Amino acid sequence: MTKILLLVLLIALTVLCQGCVGRLFYYPDKETYDTPARHGLPFEEVTFASKDGTRLSGWFIPAVGKPKGTVIHFHGNAQNMTAHFGFVSWLPAEGFNLFVFDYRGYGKSAGRPNRQGVFEDSVAAISYIAARKDVDQNRLLILGQSLGGTNAIAAVGMNRFTGIRAVAIESTFASYREIVRDKIGEIPIVSLFKWPLSYLLVGNSHSADQVVDKIAPLPLLLIYGDEDPIIPYRHGKKLFEKAKEPKQFWTIKGGSHTEAFLEAGSPYRAKLVSFFLESLDGKLKIPK
């Protein structure tokens, strides 16, 4: 009888939690929080198609002065690209073209977010920039934050884009199943069932830990705050262990979630620029 009750409870918990899993990863909205114009930056509003034809929206912001390279930014799971622009708005002044875009269901992009679709959107964003005639297609750089880091690792790891020269990732989770397990573990009573529930509720397709080793021989940079309340620090260490050289890991002491580049005076902005430039100039190991 006890086993039957436990089984019934597990089924009930599974049904109850299934609706929460999508909301854990995707919190899109259509509001406009910021624009490049507010930062005195000219920009081009663009649309491009994902693999299934879903129309996606983005901004292309040219570098101030002669471009050193082009950074493609993959934003986190909440709101839309306009809310995340402050993390990267400083890059054009450092001499980088910048491309930001919204996954399906975010901002002006059509459709509704789901894992396969968002993965295809991420691949499409890289392909779009790689096809633009006004950028040096052999000097592309990737910056992904939180969910965007997972999307970026999956897109680059599962495809061979010849023009990418470095990948920088901040505060992303190692796998979908592991982060769901972590979040279930925070819920009283339900936490007792976190292992079976994590397997029942979510698969691991397009998880970063499955493909992070395929980023090599591109230089990979992983950045994590050791007091991140959203993505536990150990997720970063796990990805670093699985990744191949050349790779770097930056620990932000006392750091929270995706805060490395938020403040204007952050030393990590200059460090990221150095990492990108060293990768572009061949001072780090990169594919020929």
Results as ranks from 00 to 15, higher is better:
E94F: 11
N159E: 04
K108W: 02
G225A: 09
E31A: 15
Q137K: 12
D281K: 14
D182W: 10
G58P: 03
T162G: 00
G236E: 01
P219E: 03
P188G: 06
M1L: 11
L277R: 02
S205W: 11
W90P: 12
Y27F: 14
A270C: 14
R132H: 03
G76V: 05
F276L: 08
G144Y: 02
Q248S: 14
Q210E: 15
S109Q: 03
Q137A: 13
G236V: 00
A93Q: 15
G65E: 06
M158N: 05
P229C: 08
K68D: 04
E120G: 01
I4K: 12
I129N: 10
V212N: 00
S171T: 12
N159L: 04
E241N: 15
T70C: 09
L7R: 15
I189M: 15
K247F: 04
R269F: 11
K285Y: 10
G117F: 03
H235Y: 11
S279N: 07
G117S: 05
F161M: 03
N151R: 10
A63T: 05
L41T: 08
V64F: 03
G254V: 05
I126V: 12
M81V: 10
K244Y: 13
Y199F: 14
I215W: 05
L140F: 07
H73A: 11
E94L: 09
L9A: 12
P217C: 01
E278T: 12
Y176P: 04
A49N: 09
W59C: 00
G157M: 02
M81D: 10
A12W: 11
V190S: 10
L218W: 09
H73M: 10
F87R: 15
S109W: 07
Y233T: 03
L262T: 14
L239S: 07
P219W: 05
I61H: 05
W195E: 15
I187C: 12
A93G: 13
Q116H: 08
M1Y: 13
P232E: 09
T32G: 02
Q145T: 11
K214R: 13
Q248R: 14
D281A: 14
L218V: 03
Y33R: 07
L280A: 08
S127A: 14
A152P: 07
D29K: 02
I179R: 04
V21N: 01
K247L: 07
V71I: 14
P92G: 13
Y224H: 02
F249N: 00
F276S: 07
I164N: 00
K285M: 10
F85A: 02
L284S: 09
